[in-house]
Design a protein around this nucleic acid. Structure first.
Lengths: 208, 208
DNA sequence: TTGAAACATGAACCAACATTCAACTTAGAA
DNA sequence: TTCTAAGTTGAATGTTGGTTCATGTTTCAA
């Protein structure tokens, strides 16, 4: 399926000026997502991408300056997609804690359906560190905002800081990797409940 | 400083049979840790490694079958070092929760002092996925064992499962990356306290 | 002391792509 | 219909860097 890729105004890649061009570029991006997701950046080859896309090798350079440039564009795009999807999944909620649960649940489901995305974002740590940092910094910021809203609503403690957001994000990412990508032995709901339990009451014994 | 590298009996790399050989191999391993840590696997070159080590290019192949084999050996070794260090840091503790706090604190300190190690282990996700999985699976298992001990001691809830260990590990890894590797704006103690707070009482508002 | 195994050396080899380019085709505005 | 910009093509180029190997040196047991 041909996925939507947003066009970034500041991007340095050459924009298509024709319906035909647009279609070709999209085919290349979709093919690249597959190829990178399957083989990783270094094992992937431009030849492989153009073959999947069904275009000639040279056409690649009509739309991208280099292999790296393509990768960067892809990371930016996937990052945006994760963000969009997550936002759409938290529309209905009663308290802030429940919202976090829904967020993780949505994340897990999305990860299972788009395993390539996570491989690509993860590999950005080495191929395009700037994008990698941006992705997680922005994600953390979004979580932190939710924490502040939750505190304002009286659901969360008042002294939460950015580090709390990073802790929650780390939890989510690792649970996503282990129970979303590596195996599906537990459902997103089950995992979300476990994480939610930690956020609700910690792991200490009942009484004190 | 020349670090100790354990010799794995099942390893396929060629063992040195002489004091001289042992020394050379050690120089290569130390140099490789530096080179990989600094440049990452793909940017790193055998030439760069042998230059750092002060040996001839060809000598590399006296001790390692390939660049990949070296990397694998390195990951195994670093993984073991992390494990050893963590174990040594939790000798004195009163309750299980405090032990977790000490574990994270030690992890953060170690990460700051050995940033290369974490880059190498992380990159294993793409260069040597098997080692990567093993590393985190074993780490999770160790955490899970601590959770069970804590439950037995009455410090932790009884229903904790493996997923709880993965959640804690994810928290630790991301906090380590953000506040150990990327910046040192907060001390290991401060970070450990934040994480410990989550495990102790969650993030919910005080009363209920 | 000696000889064979272990080790060291670095020039040369080679395969794998990323990237370029000049010739060719198609789109779509006028 | 025509004409030019946009797009397509794939063979050829060029570079990088892992790996090999023939030759020379060192170790150490006998």
């Amino acid at each position: 399926m041909a996925t939507e890729y947003s066009e970034h105004t500041e991007s340095k890649d050459k924009q298509p000026r024709t319906a035909r061009g647009l279609k070709t570029k999209r085919k290349l991006l979709d093919a690249a997502a597959l190829e990178f997701g399957e083989k990783g950046f270094h094992e992937a080859s431009i030849t492989g991408i153009t073959q999947r896309a069904g275009t000639a090798l040279g056409s690649f350079y009509t739309y991208f300056d280099s292999k790296d440039a393509l990768f960067t564009a892809l990371v930016k795009d996937m990052s945006a997609r994760v963000k969009t999807h997550a936002a759409g999944a938290m529309t209905e909620w009663h308290d802030a804690l429940e919202r976090e649960k829904l967020a993780l649940e949505a994340f897990m489901t999305f990860a299972r359906e788009h395993k390539e995305i996570y491989r690509i974002i993860d590999e950005a740590e080495f191929v395009d560190p700037g994008s990698y940092r941006s992705h997680y910094e922005e994600t953390a910021k979004r979580i932190y905002e939710r924490l502040q809203e939750g505190a304002a609503a009286g659901d969360f403690r008042g002294e939460l800081e950015e580090a709390h957001a990073w802790a929650i994000m780390g939890m989510n990412v690792f649970l996503g990797m282990r129970y979303g990508i590596w195996s599906e032995e537990k459902s997103p709901v089950q995992i979300a409940e476990i994480a939610s339990g930690i956020l609700a009451k910690g792991i200490g014994a009942e009484k004190k």
